[in-house]
Simulated scan of single mutants.
Amino acid sequence: MAKWSIVKRIPVYGGSFTSMKHMVLAPAELSWSCSFSAMHSLTNTGEEDEELLKKMADNGSKLTSKIDYTNLVEKYRRDGNLSAAYDLLQSLQDKNICLPISVFHNLLAAAGEQNDMKLSCRAFRELLVQAGKPLSSECYLNLARAFINTDDCIHLLSLLKEVSESSLPCRLIVLNRTILAFAETRQIDKVLMILEQMKEWQCKPDAITYNSVLDILGRAGLVNEMLRLLSSMKEDCHVSLNIITYNTVLNGLRKACRFDMCLVLYNEMVQGGIEPDLLSYTAVIDSLGRSGNIKESLRLFDEMKQREIRPSVYVYRALIDCLKKSGDFQRALQLSDELKNTSSSDLAGPQDFKRHLRPSYRR
């Protein structure tokens, strides 16, 4: 695979990332002779391409500026000839010539559409070098799209391992955002594969990594996988379980109707010294009520109010519905009256549930 070496801080593919700060580009005066096959592929040209061909002919089939190279790569992209674009990039890299960042944004999008894994990783790598920081969400999604129709992840894992071993200050953010992009494109198997590989790499998964994957598994209804990952997280000495970890799993269990596990996990959390918050109480109270354990559900509801954690309309309605189903209409009526007499300012609103399970990475 490609690596990175440094000559006057010029990125050259062939090893690992070096420092991304204060990168300078190589001078563009170097010329590269176009091969016959490259010339032959320039067909069906428009007015802009005719100008390029004329210039190439006037210079003895040589390109002499970064603009020429940029135009040629863009032509290959428009024609869908991504293999030729990749070969040209390799030639330019050997001569320490870097193209504008916009070229790689376009190539990454095209590679994602055509499921070109090799070019996708190459363009993504170049964008990281030139930007020196996490890229836009669309860049990560384009990278993930290139792998939708394949199980071959050699290029992907090689790229991510390079990131892990690099000196990029944002390398963990890059890995975490890559995981989220693969989750968004419904490639859960690759999410789990990346996580497992990270455990062996220099840049280890952190609590954000684990919590994000737990959330992904919970949303997909993969409860057993979520519980296995939670157990694995407990064994990882590099991370600690926190309130977001427990809330994520509690919510996943509740949605999957695994009410039996909710109280077990809740008790584990409390015994571990983590105080439940609004999200914790909401998940466990609803789960207990729906499982028929109304007594414990009401006890936690009272405890929640005693701790001055404002309940939401949802919690009230869930309890009222459960009481009606159990035949306790008197208690249901009492709670209904209590809800009517409670001002909106004393109730938790949607904004109180917006504790992000996933990082925004807006830096």
Rank of each mutant, 00 (worst) to 15 (best):
K325V: 14
C98S: 15
L323R: 01
L319G: 00
A2N: 12
E235I: 07
L180Y: 07
L82N: 04
K62E: 07
K204N: 02
S343T: 05
N149T: 13
L128E: 01
N293I: 00
I154E: 15
I309D: 09
K133L: 10
V223K: 13
I188V: 15
T18G: 11
Q187F: 11
Q93A: 12
Y69N: 03
N142C: 12
V223A: 14
G292A: 06
N81A: 07
I243E: 14
I67Q: 10
E162K: 09
K295P: 00
S287A: 14
Q197I: 01
E296T: 06
L323A: 01
L278Q: 11
E296V: 01
S5K: 11
L214E: 05
R355D: 15
S33P: 03
Q114S: 12
M193F: 12
E296N: 13
F147M: 11
C98G: 10
K340G: 00
V103E: 05
R78W: 03
R9A: 08
V24C: 00
V213C: 03
L230K: 10
T64N: 05
E50L: 11
S312C: 08
I101F: 04
A28Q: 13
L88H: 05
F182D: 02
K255I: 08
K199N: 11
C237T: 12
P276E: 11
W32V: 15
F36V: 00
L227R: 13
S212M: 08
L180C: 12
S136M: 06
D236T: 11
A26N: 13
K199T: 14
P205N: 02
L253A: 04
L250N: 04
M304N: 06
I148Q: 14
R299I: 08
Q130E: 13
V174K: 04
V12K: 12
S287D: 02
V163F: 04
R317T: 01
P276G: 11
Q90G: 08
P134Q: 08
E47A: 12
K295L: 02
L300G: 02
G292C: 04
A123H: 03
K354H: 10
R254F: 03
C170Y: 15
N176V: 07
A318P: 00
Q197C: 13
V249L: 10
K55G: 07
E200S: 15
M23V: 15
L241R: 14
H238A: 12
E268Q: 12
T342E: 01
A332C: 07
S158I: 09
N293F: 01
Q351A: 13
A2V: 09
T70I: 06
T150S: 13
G112M: 08
L88S: 02
I208L: 08
S344F: 03
D236Y: 09
A348D: 08
S102T: 13
R122G: 00
P276T: 09
E29C: 05
G289V: 02
K305N: 06
R355S: 15
L143M: 03
F17T: 02
C98D: 12
D152A: 10
G252I: 02
K3Q: 06
D346S: 06
G112Q: 04
L227M: 15
K21A: 13
A146P: 02
C98P: 00
G132F: 06
K55W: 01
R331I: 00
L89T: 05
E184T: 05
R78Q: 14
L214K: 06
